[in-house]
């Protein structure tokens, strides 16, 4: 009986929390199907439903909203960053977690200190540097800016590598494997959850960030923008009354691929990994 009450109580709590958490999301979705273009202030659900916002998004790009181009730009940047950052993070984490060399502690402290400077502070300097290299307004420049320093974010991944039993690596070493082989064949296959975490994180950061993009992409031409800059721009005071539901539609479209990615990869978070690896 007591157990029954406990079960009911915790499910009610979950339902309550989910309602709170999904409230803005539902509003985003229903507004994206509204035929009224501005901000609807008094009704949660639109009075008239329509898919025109999506049609406009994909088939009628104008000078204010050129979604196909934005999506393509963000995709290119996201994929490139994802590859470079994940590689960097995993490489640094392996060196720091699984290898012992003289300057290791020193480099770790140094990385911590370097990571403590506010990113926005160096942003302005990065902007000056990129301007000298002529990489303003280019996707390549944006990729470099997002992924160049990604090695500093190795700590969480290192924390995971630390939990992989050292005996596994020693066993590999005794059998004559080099560090490279150990890294690729032993440690990486055991690190799927943290790899997934790193991949998702580094793919998402260019989609989520807009400050850096705004600083780096100065062009007034909507073709050069990323999704973040483009959508932010739609909420401009002069545009919001004609484009708010288009903005919502854009938000939904961006979220769909990322949500699918998340749901598929969720299981990696949940699999127990290190539990039985050494026993056999």
């Amino acid at each position: 009986m007591k157990k029954m009450i406990n079960i009911i109580w915790r499910h009610l709590l979950l339902i309550f929390l989910v309602i709170i958490w999904l409230f803005p999301i539902v509003w985003l979705v229903v507004t994206s199907f509204s035929s009224y273009k501005g901000v609807n202030t008094f009704n949660f659900f639109p009075e008239e439903w329509s898919i025109d916002n999506y049609v406009q998004l994909f088939t009628r790009p104008d000078t204010a909203a050129n979604f196909p181009a934005w999506f393509k730009n963000s995709m290119i940047v996201g994929v490139c960053c994802c590859i470079i950052s994940t590689t960097f993070v995993v490489m640094v984490a392996y060196a720091m977690s699984c290898m012992r060399f003289k300057s290791r502690k020193g480099i770790m402290s140094f990385a911590i200190i370097a990571g403590m400077f506010p990113g926005v502070l160096s942003m302005i300097a990065v902007y000056f540097v990129m301007k000298q290299f002529g990489l303003i307004d280019s996707l390549f420049g944006l990729v470099i800016v997002y992924s160049a320093s990604s090695g500093l974010g190795y700590l969480i991944c290192k924390g995971f590598f630390d939990t992989i039993p050292a005996s596994l690596r020693e066993a590999a070493k005794i059998e004559g494997a080099s560090q490279l082989t150990t890294f690729v064949k032993v440690v990486l296959p055991l690190s799927r959850p943290i790899l997934v975490y790193t991949v998702i994180n580094s793919f998402l950061s260019p989609w989520m960030d807009f400050v850096m993009a705004r600083l780096m992409i100065r062009s007034k031409d909507a073709n050069d923008w990323t999704v973040a800059i483009g959508l932010y721009n739609l909420l401009d005071r002069n545009l919001i009354n004609d484009y708010f539901s288009v903005f919502c539609a854009g938000g939904v479209i961006v979220a769909i691929p990322i949500s699918i990615l998340f749901v598929i990869m969720q299981k990696f978070y949940v699999e127990g990994v290190t539990g039985g690896a050494v026993k056999g």
Binding site: W27, F210, F247, C248, G250
Partner: peptide, 15 residues
């Protein structure tokens, strides 16, 4: 809950 992460932060925050 994961759905809320999937929507980029700047979209949810502006919204």
């Amino acid at each position: 809950f994961v759905i809320t992460i999937a929507i980029p932060q700047f979209v949810t925050l502006l919204l």
